[in-house]
């Protein structure tokens, strides 16, 4: 149960302000989710390189010699940029999977939040404004991003339970609602080899989409089939390397409002989240239809 915000920029000149705009939207949704907050941001990428965002409860210890240790094990050059409890590891794209295994050995306390060419995820327990300040979210730039404020329902208030969830390269998902068949679906997806680390229903939703895409579906097709295969209430906002999608369940009780101008597409759980966006007064503002997939890409 939560607040969601999302922003997909069409106008490149706004990219340096993406973090600032998303942060303002995120903080506005504090009432809907005071327990934790998170953001996925798609910044500049470099072909052939991957970024892996990791989180640690002891960042000073874990991050100090991480670059050297990881480079030695992988036999390549990895660099580490620490941001509070998170760090972004830069490494060759073909080493991403072996880096996960190496990290499990080298730093068992680390949690991998995401990997991909462009995605970075930052999420922590606490009020959205405090989380945003810890990571200097407002200084970040990028082409699109998704944020989430969480009111935990049936799983713990932990960093791991915070959104966004990423279960595939450059993929992420945030959710408002509650899924009712996540336990059986989690068992099925795990049996199919998907990595699901928490007992959170949303992670199952994210893994479901990643699984469908692994099986060859496009994001649009995966979102379409989620309407049949996921039970319960959901408004999802998802990100991919160059795309941004929205889907609501057929009952569509959980709120959603969107705005589009020549410069951007924006999503908010409430209109309040959108009021400071440039040109909002003349934007096309609408509610996404139930059981309908919306998708934009660069």
């Amino acid at each position: 149960m939560c607040g969601i915000v999302g922003l997909f920029l069409k106008d490149k000149s706004l990219e340096p302000q993406l973090g600032a705009m998303l942060t303002d939207m995120l903080i506005t949704m504090t009432d809907r989710g005071p327990d934790s907050a998170g953001i996925a941001i798609y910044g500049a990428g470099q072909g052939g390189r991957a970024k892996m965002t990791v989180q640690s409860a002891q960042p000073d210890n874990d991050f100090a010699t991480l670059a050297e240790d990881l480079s030695a094990v992988l036999g390549t050059s990895a660099s580490v940029r620490a941001v509070d409890t998170h760090a972004v590891i830069d490494l060759p794209a073909d080493k991403a999977e072996s880096a996960r295994a190496a990290l499990a050995e080298l730093r068992p306390g680390l949690r991998v939040m995401s990997d991909g060419e462009r995605i970075e995820i930052f999420k922590e327990v606490g009020l959205p404004k405090d989380v945003a300040a810890r990571f200097s979210l407002s200084a970040m730039s990028g082409s699109h991003g998704i944020g989430h404020t969480r009111m935990a329902t049936e799983s713990a208030v932990t960093t791991q339970g915070a959104h966004p969830f990423s279960t595939g390269a450059d993929q992420c998902l945030v959710h408002n609602g509650s899924l009712s068949n996540h336990n059986s679906l989690r068992r099925k997806l795990r049996a199919a080899g998907m990595r699901i680390e928490s007992e959170n229903d949303t992670e199952v939703g994210a893994a479901y989409l990643s699984w469908r895409m692994r099986e060859g579906a496009t994001l649009g097709e995966a979102l379409e089939s989620s309407i049949d295969d996921l039970d319960g209430f959901f408004t999802f906002v998802v990100g991919t390397k160059d795309g941004f999608g929205v889907v609501r369940d057929p009952i569509a009780c959980k709120p959603a409002v969107m705005a589009e101008t020549d410069q951007y597409v924006a999503f908010g759980s409430e209109y309040r989240a959108l009021v400071n966006l440039p040109g909002i007064d003349s934007a096309r503002v609408w509610e996404p239809e139930p059981a309908t997939v919306y998708f934009w890409s660069h």
Partner: peptide, 12 residues
């Protein structure tokens, strides 16, 4: 369900 709200975030 209530006709004009669903879930704890709306309940608030």
């Amino acid at each position: 369900r209530h006709p004009d709200w669903t879930g704890p975030d709306d309940l608030e």
